[in-house]
Computed example of a mutant assay.
Amino acid sequence: MSDSLHLSVLDLIPVRTNQSSADAVAGALALAQLADRLGYERYWFAEHHNMASVASTTPPVLIAAVAATTERIRVGSGGVMLPNHSPLVVAEQFAALEAIAPGRIDLGIGRAPGSDPVITQLLRLSGTTSDVDRFPDNIADILSLLSTDGATLRLTSGREYDIRATPAAAAVPTLWLLGSSDYSAKLAASLGLPYVFANHFSGDGIEAALHHYRTGYQPSEAHPEPRTFLTVNASVAPTKEEAYDRALPQLRTMARLRLGRPMHALETVDEALAAEPDAMSDEVIAAMAGRWIIGDAAQAIDAVRRLSSQYGVDEVMISPIAGARTAEPAGAGRTQTLELLAGAL
């Protein structure tokens, strides 16, 4: 892969009909190794909880597995949903990951819980979490804890107490803020941090968010210039018709989510094509499909370039949502998407 445009991968680890979590995770590790060989810039895992078709619940564990089985690709979270976690634990996890794969770790952080209210409450009952209202302070705390100098806590007695995420850090992960609103864009700008717009699930407001980020950017020592990219769902195949068929299982899953209907494992392409028509779902699907990249290799890479040019980014992160037919390996569509995009670039 050689071009001024860089491609990366966002993985939610889809779980399809009759597939185990072990199968899905094994497929994700194989896909990450393929992305490494094809020259993709980075490979990130999302954090979602209690979803029948999503196995990416614990990014740090998955990042460690991928870092141990790849050579050059950056690996990270897209992202850690900070309200679910203690800032100190997040800092310790990613300091350890940086020690496992020096210079290759990204810590992407989001402000949303990544789950429904019941799971959010259960996470809070299960262990130490952070207050969403203190999100800016928690980001600053993580930056301090990860730094080679660590952080200093002043106790009520007046004594200073030193805290470090790891005893002797030689380097630190790159911290990115993720979001789909002005809030995260403005916060990233004020802290001098890189920013990612989550276009794969919310295409609204991207122009305003990037405008706020770039115009309000306060240079930091680590990041003297603003740095941003966006995500997008993609299904790429030899023909546009096949690409749409392979996108249909994920389109139907997202339609169920948005319509508040029961969720289940991701359908195969054959199951999705055989489903009865549903006017409400079809309307939602049509709207989403218009925002996703669905086409052959030439059409897809052209769409990626248009996104890059329109929003002034030199990197686009692909969420490979292409499904597989019943007789195929579960990752067939995702593998094909990455291979065709890399070959067209």
Rank of each mutant, 00 (worst) to 15 (best):
P238G: 03
A208G: 12
S235W: 08
N233G: 11
S235K: 06
G205N: 02
L230W: 01
S202A: 12
P219E: 00
N233F: 15
T231I: 08
D245N: 10
E241C: 01
H211R: 13
V232P: 05
E221W: 00
R214P: 07
T239M: 07
P224W: 01
H211D: 15
H223F: 15
Y244E: 09
A247Y: 08
K240L: 11
R246N: 08
A209S: 14
T231R: 08
Y244D: 04
E225H: 13
T228M: 05
S235H: 06
G203W: 11
A222T: 08
L210T: 07
T231E: 05
D204T: 15
N233K: 13
G203R: 02
L210R: 02
R246P: 12
T231W: 08
E241D: 13
G216L: 04
H212I: 10
P219H: 00
Y244R: 13
I206P: 09
T215N: 11
G216T: 03
N233H: 14
D204F: 14
N199E: 06
E225A: 14
G203K: 00
E207Q: 11
A237W: 07
P226I: 00
Y213F: 09
A208V: 09
H211K: 12
L230D: 00
E225R: 13
A247G: 07
L230K: 00
V232K: 01
L230T: 12
E221C: 05
E225Y: 08
T231L: 09
T228G: 04
E221Y: 01
P224M: 03
L210H: 03
A237C: 07
E241G: 03
K240H: 12
T228Y: 08
T231N: 07
E207N: 11
R227D: 11
T215G: 04
R214S: 05
H212P: 08
